[in-house]
Nucleic acid binder design. Sequence first.
RNA 1: GGAGGCUUCGCCUAGUCCGGUCUAUGGCGCCGCACUGCUAAUGCGGUUUGGGUUAAUCCCCAUCCCGGGUUCAAAUCCCGGAGCCUCCGCCA
Length: 433
Amino acid sequence: MIDLRLVRENPDLVRASQRARGADESRVDALLTADAERRQAVKRGDDLRAEQKNASAAVKKASPEERAAVLERAKSLAAQVKEAEEAQRAADAALREAHLKLANVVADEVPPGGEDDAVTLRTVGEVPTYDFPVRDHLEIGELLGAIDMERGAKVSGSRFYFLTGPGALLEFALAQLAIGRAVAAGFTPVVAPALVRPEAMEGTGFLGDHDEEVYRVERDDLYLVGTSEVALAGMHAAEVLDLANGPRRYAGWSSCFRREAGSYGKDTRGIIRVHWFDKVEMFSFCAPEEAAAEHLRLLAWEEEFLTALELPYRVVDIAAGDLGTSAARKYDIEAWFPSQGTYRELTSTSDCTTFQARRLNIRYKDSDGKNQIAATLNGTLCAIARTIACLLEVHQRADGSVYVPKALRPWLGGVELLTPGMTLAAAVPPPTA
RNA sequence: GGAGGCUUCGCCUAGUCCGGUCUAUGGCGCCGCACUGCUAAUGCGGUUUGGGUUAAUCCCCAUCCCGGGUUCAAAUCCCGGAGCCUCCGCCA
């Protein structure tokens, strides 16, 4: 949630932000009203409680003659307090509800518009050309024995898959590369839970207007995460972090689950849009004034990773109307998919400023020793299924084999080429010991 | 799944049986001041976190794991839940 003080002191700024998102700007006024009403209710409750405390203490001291009268007064005040507390609870709940309905305030520099108005910041790498008819990643995956959609559907339904043989090895190679690079850059590697409590889900902003995207395990009141961001943010909920030595960075590994409601007919082929995939996610806690710079660092790490995979891409600055609830700013990296002749999102990094941390009560001690709300940022290092899809397409050869980028080779037995029918033993790193 | 124990203001801890004097004890740590030509020691004071109010100070309210309840009054009594620990059962 956003800073209430900002809403009180500069409601126009918040209204403008809602407008830029294409969201309802009257929610700002609803929040202001709820805030004023809550403060009134709190004052009344506090005053009555103070009076009642005095009355209650007087009961003890009262002489036997006056005791009955004093007790009567205390009882009457107790009843009034009860009433006032009821009103206060209602006012608190109304405020929280109104507060949760506001998305994060959009950063000044964010391009206006919606989904189609992202601004391309740069394009990196040459779009490859092929002197043979290109195959899509599923065709290549099937030739290699790397992807099995049919059996995925048999076992789990549509948008599920098996990664088999070289596909499975690719998953581990990408994971090793991503985690290894993150650790080298100073991130703490984390294997994170994929099932989380509602508070973690709500705290990261996934239960608002987009909760139909999320799998819920009703029987146990748990949710399957759509990204390890949820667990990583929740990891330090209600804590005061030491950020004196700079941002606290995690590289989280987890499975990710998405219902993909409302995406019927989109990307039905292959493993570009699936209900489940594994991902290495970067997550950073830092001081709010450092968030924008940290955001660019996350973006740089993402770019370096794609460069290591020798994939051409472009960086886009997401427009206000297409930002997630928690994000003040978001950059996507879109990589080239030859079968589609276009760039598709491969990674995404969001600056959530203090929005998530305020909900999750994540603070840090500033240089004056005062507790302040921290900022949180997240960025994809490697969404594995989609990255495999992109690798297979971009690095395909006429005979159905696939070039292996140098960076991945250490994890694939040093092979330069994945070929249909190859011996898998060749693509496994030799034991080091 | 079953049985028991535990959870107090950074850490440790007193208090809980038997409700009010708890405005929560003491130690450690930390901050400030005093003293000492440095350091150490000592003394004094401060040190949970939120909210309300205010120009600011003051003040008020809440906060003893969380949520309910009993009561004029709850750290303390009752109910529910969470977390940690021990034991039994089951289990990769």
